[in-house]
Amino acid sequence: MLTLSPPPPAATPTRRPVLAPLGAEHSPEAALSIHDMTVAYHRKPVLWDVDLDVPPGSLVGIVGPNGAGKSTLIKAVLDLIPRVSGRVLVFGKPYRQQRHRVAYVPQRESVDWDFPVSALEVVAMGLYGRIGWFRPVTRRHREIALHALERVGIADLAHRQISQLSGGQQQRTFLARALVQEADLYLMDEPFAAVDAATEKAIVRLLQDLRAAGRTALVVHHDLQTVAEYFDRVVLLNLRVVASGLTETVFTRENLQKTYGGRLTLMTEAAEALARETPAP
């Protein structure tokens, strides 16, 4: 169940029983359960008191303005940046014990695409945890990697050096790398950023496949217009969790206004219209 951090004044108490019956928070079955997490860079807090439960098998969009702490949330869950306080449980256990069940898709700009490796080699990296220290990558591993590239539709580019891939193809490579991890929880940082329409469709299909297989995905997303279409649940984030829950309940004009404040633009109007018109799944 998704629960909210200290609810914004008068916002949710009446909805609460629908989203998360009192006393049912942090259920052990939650794919991801974040409790009172605060993160700071150089003593300046960038995430406050985040409280979040993600039920398994859901597609969750994380939405918020620039600097809201969306990437930070993911990185703090993965222990890539230290938490000041709070607890993170993945399927009921600390992340460190569940590492193998979590796959991470970082922002595309986070790596040097001139690095001398091929798409296939990048995908095979997803298997390194399973292969173990000191052991080489074998043909079987390369076959698994190739199969993952097939699933994202770029098997023919397997041996291309990664700088010779388009932005969309690079993103697909990253997704294929997450796929070979066979994880139960996927944390994706802006997978839709600057990709072509075909790639966007491919990613959406992939997310739906994952959900159909009972996997969970948390996706940082920047395009408000597609939130209602792509995600079952949404987390509205701006240093704090402004609201979170089922998309149709939480993705409202009021909540968006709270999240984006004055920065809310025409784009949101469109998103809102979409949210209203999209029938509940």
Binding site: K75, L78, D79, L80, R99, H100, V102, A103, Y104, P106, S110, V111, D112, F115, V117, E121, V122, M125, G126, Y128, G129, I131, W133, F134, P136, V137, R177, Q181
Partner: peptide, 22 residues
């Protein structure tokens, strides 16, 4: 030779390496 793939992944994508327990 021994740490080829470990050095490769931690040079290319240290964050991913860390999440894989490397």
């Amino acid at each position: 030779l021994v740490l080829y793939k470990e050095l490769q992944i931690s040079s290319f994508d240290p964050a991913l390496a860390t999440t894989l327990g490397i």
